[in-house]
Simulated scan of single mutants.
Amino acid sequence: MEAIRFIVGTLLQVLLVMVFLLRVLLPLSRADSRNQLSQAVIRMTNPLVLPLRKVLPPIGKVDTASIVALIIVQAAAVAMMWLLGGYPGIFTPAQFIQVVFLMLVTTVLRFYIFALILYAILSWIAPGTYSPAASLLDTLCEPLLRPLRRIIPPLAGIDLSALFAIIILQAIHIAIT
């Protein structure tokens, strides 16, 4: 049963919720919508986002339909894991909402920690080369790294801002959980 919970949890949380999280983050970070990976995210999430968009128009640059779709998918993932016994006990509605938002925040933190690790590795292995994934990572990570680069200058030509960003995000993750 534990293996089934792991597989279902991974598919729901890592794949499905992450795709909808990307749907929210890509426009906020002004990612290139013509990027192949951006197009894949848009196509995968359109079946839920487009009907919601008819009811929930965007507010400025914030796509409310994508945010609501992300919350719906996260709530469905939490409910599925609860049904499989992944969360002990019975939830009250307030506890359910709390777990959904806590899982959403931890997912965002984990996503950025992983993205920053990939960003740092790519900057060491293949600096200056173009790929759709590297372009997307650059667009997603730069808003986090830019303020840190103002505070922490490169040390002997080595940019340590990603390391400090990972430490800060990990500390926030530990404090929340």
Rank of each mutant, 00 (worst) to 15 (best):
F91E: 09
L118F: 15
W124D: 06
Y130G: 10
I42H: 10
T107Y: 04
L22E: 10
S29Y: 09
A75R: 01
F101D: 03
L22A: 01
L122V: 00
F114G: 15
P153I: 02
L37E: 01
A134Y: 11
I113P: 06
M80V: 14
T106N: 12
P93I: 05
T107I: 09
V100N: 04
A115H: 00
T92P: 11
I7P: 14
P58R: 12
F91V: 11
D159R: 05
V100A: 08
P88I: 04
L144I: 00
S66C: 03
D159C: 06
M1I: 12
L16G: 02
N46V: 09
M44Y: 00
T177L: 13
I166K: 02
Q36V: 04
G128P: 14
S33I: 06
L56M: 12
S123A: 12
V19S: 10
A76Y: 05
I4H: 11
V105N: 06
A76E: 01
V100T: 00
E2D: 14
L25I: 03
Q98V: 08
T64G: 09
L83G: 15
L145P: 05
Q170R: 12
I72N: 05
I168K: 03
A133F: 15
V55K: 13
T139V: 02
I125S: 11
L109Q: 08
P127H: 11
V100E: 00
I71C: 01
